[in-house]
Amino acid sequence: MTTQESVDPGRRKFLDVFLAGSGLAALIGLIYPIFKFFTPPDQEEAVVSSVNLGPAKDFPANSGKIFRFGNKPGLIIRSADGKFRAFSATCTHLDCIVQYDGKAGDIWCACHGGRYDINGQNISGPPPRPLDQMSVNILPESEEILVTLELKDKT
């Protein structure tokens, strides 16, 4: 059945060892990415429809801050009376980013001087419509601020 001459047992043994070794190495090469895959990444979960901006006490009254919301900039305002409000920070006129004007207590776009009131309503200058609103929630225990895109009827 077998021809001893054609297959040298030493060579056969070597081939088996070679196969086992390379097979093991390849297996490790495949398991490594899977192992890495399951190691929790630095950022623990996908950013979905809300953003945590950290503790409320980090925001002084009568100030505003730009934050990232998905692929859009957002503006969170803490008005002089301590209330939080959040809007899409993209000016509805062109694509500039609006800012909080603490002196006037309203929102201002530096590009063409458009102004919105503290509720995001366009009050003067070129902006054709109000800023898109976001809703702000303060988490009960940690007192962290959670900004969520407000559901609006887009139809």
Binding site: P33, K36, F37, T39, P41, Q43, A46, V48, S49, G70
Partner: peptide, 23 residues
């Protein structure tokens, strides 16, 4: 393990998988 179905999470979680999750 990472995918989250939903109109406001599917895209984000796939993006998360291909950018943040190793391999």
């Amino acid at each position: 393990f990472y995918y989250r179905p939903g109109a406001d999470s599917s895209f984000e979680s796939v993006k998360f998988i291909i950018t943040q999750v190793k391999f």
